[in-house]
Amino acid sequence: MSAPPGKARFSKAVYARPRSLVDVKSHFCPGCHHGTIHKIVAECIDRYGLREKTIGVACVGCSVFLYDYIDVDVVESPHGRAPAVATGVKRAQPDKFVFTYQGDGDLAAIGTSEIIHAANRGENLSVIFVNNTTYGMTGGQMAPTTMLGQKTSTTPYGRDFRGDGYPIRMAELLAGLEGTAYSARVAVSTPAQIRKSKEAVRKAFEMQINGMGLSIVEFLSTCPTNWGMKPLDAQKRVLGEMSEYFPLGVFKERVQADFA
């Protein structure tokens, strides 16, 4: 085999797969942001040298396959219970790095009790929360984050607040709890957003490393398949109506630990 073009001149690798990202093809649909978010998480694990002391907690939904893609120990949790499982891991192994990776149905519907109380206790965990406004794995049903008017397989006429309630803003809600150390909402629909979201995950991880309490990063993500959109159009939706309702930003950032 001949060397790739330019190999002689361009030999410094400036982007390769993060060490903590398993070198396999993912099962995610084309344009799904789960892959992008996995990469960011893996990069941040690498950055702080956490791979060998990390225990990830996978939830139920498309994100359960975390254990196939992130090269760390992973325990599977029942639907919505990841913050409780992570609490059990962290209390048993306080010196380890523990994060959950949860979708919106998982964290913002069935698992609201577990995330609110883990945050309120100030559990020293990091939470990666993927909000794509739908239940992806089960076929695109209404999620707690589904936008008003959005058609899903269980809101065939569009989500109506009069019967279905409103899309829930978790990053803001959790920022209101004393135990939450860090809460931010980010997106990965532009290169600039990707860089910003990395900063947020780094901050979240640093919170845990410094023993500050629960940190959460909410990602606005696409689900092109269940939205019935091309990936580029799905990204436009994130940049448009989704970001209008779910504003990007940092809602809480603790500067000093409450407990020594």
Binding site: Y15, A16, G35, P191, I194
Partner: peptide
């Protein structure tokens, strides 16, 4: 230019970049 923006964007991590 080897800016790596494409690689950072790719959800499937299938772009490698050299400078």
């Amino acid at each position: 230019t080897g800016c790596a923006i494409c690689a950072e964007t790719c959800p499937d991590a299938c772009i490698l970049v050299w400078r």
